[in-house]
């Protein structure tokens, strides 16, 4: 496959940036989007140019590092992470636009790399339980109703990738925060701190400069882990009950 790429290049946080055009050839449909970028970077390095900076780690869809907006869609045309997006979803001769996550709370560090530590601070303000848990407990020590376990698990799938913020027209982190809050609030271990957790995480989310939720649903459509929009409703309920 031969492709034309237009990739956001920006040398540093305060430097101006722009889309820069590149040609890549010899891309196989089996390659992942990141491997395609690796191929381009190898060429750039050989010609003495700065390679394109992008975040990645696990390359198996579980770490959430590989965020980038491809043709206006977070993580591209498929509902998956960029590392799990394969080039067979593009056609020979395509022009592909690649931009970093855009949100005031996610400042660009370099090229496609953004600083997502605002998410860490949201987690830090209540995305855990304070009781010392020691090693893994015996599975039946604390009975968990099946429904609660399912709800918690569905929301625990969030990998903190930030696609929800990137896709939201308001740069809102409600889906992410909802995933964390619902996951912990649903379980007996998380129940005692429900009120403070919900209040505290919402307060941090607001303080970090994320936008508000207007229920457009773009987040849940973009989420590679299928965190449901109804999670936001559950977060709202917990917040309003416990404010």
């Amino acid at each position: 496959m031969n492709l034309t790429l237009r990739i956001w290049r920006q040398t540093g946080p305060d430097a101006p940036g722009a889309l820069t055009r590149y040609q890549v050839s010899g891309i196989s449909p089996e390659m992942s989007f990141l491997e395609m970028l690796d191929t381009l970077n190898e060429e750039l390095i050989l010609t003495g140019e700065q390679p394109i900076a992008f975040d990645h780690d696990c390359r198996e869809g579980i770490c959430g590092a590989c965020g980038m907006v491809i043709n206006g869609q977070a993580h591209g045309p498929e509902r998956t992470t960029t590392c799990q997006l394969h080039m067979r979803h593009f056609r020979d001769g395509d022009t592909i636009d690649v931009e970093p996550w855009r949100a005031a709370a996610f400042p660009v560090v370099k090229d496609l790399v953004v600083d997502r530590s605002a998410f860490d601070r949201i987690i830090g303000s209540g995305g855990y339980i304070t009781a010392p848990t020691g090693s893994a407990p015996e599975a039946h020590a604390t009975p968990v109703p099946k429904e609660a376990a399912d709800l918690a698990f569905e929301h625990a799938e969030c990998i903190g990738c930030g696609a929800c913020v990137a896709a939201c027209p308001n740069g809102s982190a409600m889906l992410f925060t909802a995933a964390k809050v619902v996951h912990l609030n649903a379980l007996p271990q998380g129940a005692p701190e429900r009120a403070t957790r919900t209040r505290s995480m919402v307060a941090t989310m607001d303080a970090e400069g994320f936008g508000g939720c207007t229920n457009t649903g773009e987040c849940a459509t973009a989420c590679p882990k299928g965190i449901p929009l109804s999670g936001i409703s559950l977060l709202n309920r917990d917040f309003l009950r416990r404010a």
């Binding site: 956001w8 005031a104 308001n170 740069g171 508000g212 773009e218």
Partner: peptide
């Protein structure tokens, strides 16, 4: 107040624009 916050939260638009959400949602 919420709209002002929302606009501040996304100061830079995507260059590759895509139509989002339903007409009713976009025109609120």
């Amino acid at each position: 107040q919420l709209s002002r916050r929302d606009l501040r939260a996304r100061p830079q638009k995507y260059l590759h624009q895509r139509r989002q959400a339903s007409y009713a949602t976009r025109t609120m």
